[in-house]
Amino acid sequence: MRWGVIVFPGSCDEQDVYDCLKHVVKQDVEFLWHGENLKNGFDCLVLPGGFSYGDYLRAGAMARFSPIMPGVVEFAARGGLVLGICNGFQILCEAGLLPGVLTRNSSLQFVCRQVYMRLEETDTPFTCAGKKGQLLKLPVKHGEGCYYADPATLERLRQNRQILFRYVDGKGKNAAGANPNGSIDDIAGVCNTGRNVFGLMPHPEDATEKILGSEDGLKIFLSIVAACEKREKGARVG
């Protein structure tokens, strides 16, 4: 399978995503510059973390108008897999590919620490290699990770089982202090109704080797690989 990592001006985690895909997960991966149109032939696109366009106006607000984005929207509409991490999640929300929005952390502080998130749904290409209720230990590093959706949207997210991960404590329980940013319903990551677009605030790419303190992030990348291998039997989407 082929991966594309989209680089926006102000992205800063693209190299981490690239390295983990190339050297740890052993994948065919290339960088894609935001200013060019999307090429064909990809199975999964990753929008990495960072501060695209300096977070001007709102985090992710400007990046959604980059030349590559219409191609990304079309790719997603055809069923292509799109993963947004941190700033990538913010961009996907601003672009309308995911519901809701990421706002300033309730603490008003930039938060940089390890968190635990609980896997809530396994019937997606991003979580299929995991088990329901499984805990992943990943780092977060963001100032605007407080997920918000209005009550009607939140209810829809629950009914459609689009909440793929929630922040919990080390025992897997919802607890005060486990949620690093004040996200509504302890949401760490959501997918679209088609289950092919997924955004999360924690960084799986920074938890893929023992030396980094956790390998739990691999679960997400290996899920995607497994899902695409299944798909390979059919026609490539991109």
Partner: peptide, 11 residues
């Protein structure tokens, strides 16, 4: 209305 405003609260 109804959207939390931590910055406003701090001020």
């Amino acid at each position: 209305e109804g959207v939390l405003d931590p910055q406003g609260k701090a001020v």
